[in-house]
Design a protein around this nucleic acid. Structure first.
Lengths: 185, 185
DNA sequence: AACGATACGGAACGCACGCCCCGGTTGGCA
DNA sequence: TGCCAACCGGGGCGTGCGTTCCGTATCGTT
C-alpha cells in the first residue's frame, strides 16, 4: 500500500515528510479531519505546497496518519481471536478502542468518515471484529442477534458520545454500552 | 420566542414563509443542518434573499424548524414526570426519541449542535429529562451513577449510531443501550 | 565549484457557502 | 384604478478551504 519510491528521497524531503506527518498526527488527533490543511502545514513549519508534494490529497494524508493506529487496532483484534476467554477478549478490545477514541478525534473520524476513506483498513478491522464477536457470542458473553454492522454502528455512536466528554463520565458511558452488549441473564 | 409582527404579513409573504418552512423541514430532516441554504430556497421555489427576509440567519431557520418537534419531546418528557411506572416512562421516552432520530437528521443535529443553538429548548429538555431519570433511578429501573449529562452524551451517541442505519438494525442498537441503562442484576 | 535535478514556499485559483443589496414586482388600501 | 409600501429574486460580496503553479532555493553529484 505504501509505495516505495523508485529513487530515495532527498534528505530535506525526507525530513519535511516526517515533520508533516507529525504535525498532521497532532492536528488530526485534536480537531479531527476538519482541520484546515494550512494549519497542518503551519505546525510543520512548511508551505501547503510541500504537503501536497508528499501526499496527493488531504484524505491521503489523513489515511497515512490513521493507518498506523488503525493497524494497531486490527492487530489487537486479531490477537484476541484465539484467546482463552472470548468474552474478555471482546470487551478488552472495546475498552482499548474506547480509550483511544476518547482522546484522539482522528480515530473516531476514521470510522465515521465516508466509506471511501480507509476502505481496506476498515475491511480488515471488520473481519477481525467479526471473529471476536462471533466467538464471544458462542461463549455466551455477548447477546445473540448482534451483527458486525451493528457493532460498527454502535462503535460509531460510542465514539460520538465520547468526544468532548469528561474523563470521569467516559467510564460510565462505556459501562452502559458494554453491559448492554452482555448476554441477558 | 417567535415574535408576532406588529402588522400582519402580506398574503404572498405569509405564503412564502410557509413554503420556506416546509422546504427547510424536508431538507434539514434529510441532510441535517449541513444543507446549503440555496438548496432550501430552491426547494421552496424562492430566492435566497426571501429566506433571509423571514429568518435572520440559517441557525434561526433551523431552530424554527426544530422547535416544534423539540417541544413535543419536552412535552412528552414532562408528561411522564408523574407516571405510575417511572421506568416505563423513562424508557418509553427513549424509544420515542430514537424513533424520531432514526429518520430525521435534524433532531439529532439539534442535540449535537454547538450549545449556542436552541439553547433554551435544550435546557428545558434537560430539566424534563432529569426528572424522568431521577424517578426511574429511585424506582430501581435505571442504574445509579448515571447523570443527566451522561444521558445527553449517550443520546448524542445513539443518534449518531442510528443515522444511516437500516431499520431492522435500529431496534437492536436501541436494545443494547436500553439494557445497558437498566439497573444491573 | 558548478550544474542539473529535486524540492520548497506561498501566492493564487476555483469552489462552496452564508449573507446582503437593489432594481423590479406585487399586494392592499384609498 | 392608481399609488405606495412591502416584498421578491438573484446577482454579488466576503470568507474559508482544498488544490495547483511557478519562481526560487537546496541538494547531491561530477
Amino acid at each position: 500500500m505504501a509505495e516505495v519510491p523508485d529513487r530515495p528521497l532527498r534528505a530535506d524531503a525526507r525530513r519535511n515528510r516526517e515533520k508533516v506527518l507529525r504535525a498532521a498526527q497532532e492536528a488530526f488527533a485534536e480537531h479531527g479531519m476538519g482541520v484546515p490543511l494550512d494549519e497542518i502545514a503551519g505546525r510543520a513549519g512548511v508551505g501547503p505546497g510541500t504537503v501536497y508534494r508528499h501526499f496527493p490529497t488531504k484524505e491521503a494524508l489523513f489515511e497515512a496518519v490513521v493507518a498506523a493506529r488503525m493497524q494497531d487496532l486490527i492487530t489487537a483484534a486479531r490477537a484476541g481471536a484465539h484467546a482463552a476467554d472470548p468474552g474478555e477478549a471482546f470487551f478488552g478490545f472495546l475498552a482499548l478502542l474506547a480509550d483511544e477514541a476518547g482522546v484522539k478525534r482522528d480515530l473516531s473520524d476514521a470510522l465515521v468518515a465516508p466509506p471511501a476513506v480507509a476502505t481496506s483498513l476498515r475491511t480488515d478491522l471488520r473481519a477481525a471484529l467479526e471473529v471476536l464477536l462471533t466467538r464471544a457470542q458462542q461463549a455466551g458473553a455477548v447477546r445473540d442477534g448482534i451483527r458486525v454492522d451493528d457493532l460498527f454502528a454502535l462503535l460509531k455512536g460510542l465514539m460520538a458520545a465520547l468526544v468532548e466528554t469528561a474523563d470521569d463520565a467516559r467510564d460510565r458511558l462505556i459501562a452502559v454500552v458494554v453491559d448492554g452488549l452482555r448476554a441477558p441473564r
